[in-house]
Amino acid sequence: MTDAPSEKEKMLRSELYDPRDRQLVRERRQARLLFEALNASRDNETKKRRQLLKELIPQGGDSVWMQPPFYCDYGSNITLDENVFFNFNCVILDVAEVRIGARTLFGPAAQVYTATHPMDAQERASGLELGFPITIGEDVWIGGGAIICPGVTIGDRSVIGAGSVVTKDVPADVFAAGNPCKVVRERAAGAR
């Protein structure tokens, strides 16, 4: 007989889970303490910021360039390739895995939401939640104020217009914008 999966295991498998679980509450609190320290740090405290980012985002925090404030749920569910940039006031709700490719840029107040709630009101009233992974490719630019919704994949080299709400996958090499976000045009190599 096998043990029942933990709430964290269910969360990471995109199953309904209880966010009030002790382990999850403890891990979210640890992330909050780290990003609060990061957000309170001074601009000239680069070593302190680098150490806090490495603790908060163990899988890529060593090369991320971030303008605080920054907010996330866990940090440990975020994987960053090299030289990812976050401008001021970005949010990642990482109850599921978030993978971000190298040299991807986030404008101010960009938000990445893996977290969601059941559509059925009775099920939602139970307090259970779920999340779906998000993948953002290499050399992507997410414009300021854009929202990336649960389960979305954005292809390499694409640009997401400011204020867009991305509810569906976006292919590589396009400019997409709007609410809901739609492909506006393909981007030619080297296009500005």
Score class of each variant (00 low, 15 high):
residue 71 Y to G: 06
residue 77 N to I: 01
residue 14 S to C: 00
residue 83 N to V: 00
residue 35 F to C: 00
residue 150 P to H: 12
residue 123 E to V: 10
residue 32 R to K: 09
residue 142 I to F: 13
residue 69 P to Y: 08
residue 57 I to P: 09
residue 103 R to W: 06
residue 36 E to I: 02
residue 165 V to C: 13
residue 81 D to N: 09
residue 66 M to T: 01
residue 122 Q to F: 06
residue 147 I to F: 11
residue 119 M to E: 05
residue 15 E to N: 07
residue 186 E to N: 14
residue 173 D to R: 15
residue 48 K to R: 08
residue 168 K to W: 11
residue 66 M to P: 04
residue 35 F to R: 05
residue 131 G to N: 12
residue 44 N to K: 03
residue 112 V to Y: 13
residue 149 C to L: 15
residue 38 L to P: 11
residue 39 N to K: 11
residue 86 F to N: 08
residue 186 E to G: 15
residue 162 A to W: 01
residue 190 G to R: 12
residue 192 R to G: 09
residue 190 G to Q: 12
residue 41 S to C: 12
residue 188 A to Y: 06
residue 91 V to W: 01
residue 130 L to Y: 13
residue 12 L to K: 10
residue 104 T to F: 08
residue 59 Q to P: 00
residue 138 E to R: 15
residue 155 G to A: 13
residue 49 R to N: 03
residue 152 V to L: 14
residue 39 N to A: 09
residue 176 A to E: 07
residue 118 P to L: 12
residue 65 W to F: 15
residue 136 I to N: 05
residue 145 G to I: 03
residue 16 L to E: 07
residue 176 A to M: 04
residue 157 R to N: 13
residue 81 D to F: 10
residue 189 A to E: 13
residue 70 F to M: 03
residue 104 T to P: 02
residue 76 S to T: 07
residue 2 T to L: 13
residue 191 A to P: 05
residue 83 N to L: 08
